[in-house]
Every structure is written in C-alpha cells, then in structure tokens.
C-alpha cells in the first residue's frame, strides 16, 4: 500500500506546545507523550498551517516540484 505523504516532524525540535494541533482542521496531528506525531490521512489538504505556526521549526510540509507532462 502506498504511504500517504504527511508533514515531517522533527521530534527533537518539538516542544509539545500543541499549537499545530489547534490549527489543524483534519486531526492529522496528535500528541504522543509530549511530542507531536502525524497520522496518515488523506484528509490532510496540505494547508501548511501547522508549519506556519510552529514556534520551533519542527514541522516541515515538503513540496516536490514537477513539470506537467
């Protein structure tokens, strides 16, 4: 089964503040212990708000740039 691309979380940088969870409208992020983890879901529309609000730069919403065939 193909993996769903999700925001990448640097758990060493995450301070567990939960801001990303509060702005995520699709419950794609959860706190496990005191660290944020992404849950694979196609509901994530790549709004990148979690990355924008993260105060420690722990979240990266990566883009691949491709040319349309």
């Amino acid at each position: 089964m193909k993996m769903i691309e999700m925001p990448v979380i640097d758990q060493a940088k995450c301070n567990g503040c939960g801001l990303c969870l509060s702005v995520c409208s699709c419950q794609a992020l959860v706190l496990v212990g005191n660290v944020v983890t992404a849950v694979e879901t196609t509901d994530c529309g790549w709004c990148t708000l979690c990355e924008a609000v993260c105060p420690t730069g722990a979240i990266r919403c990566l883009y691949e740039v491709v040319i349309e065939e």
Binding site: E5, C44, G45, W46, C61, Y63, E64, V66, I67, E68
Partner: peptide, 13 residues
C-alpha cells in the same frame, strides 16, 4: 502552476 497536496506542478514552463 497548480498547487497539489505535497506537489507544485508547473503547468506553463
């Protein structure tokens, strides 16, 4: 361009 989930597609290079 077209913004997709996880991709930026260049439509008109």
């Amino acid at each position: 361009v077209r913004l997709e989930r996880h991709r930026i597609v260049i439509k008109d290079k």
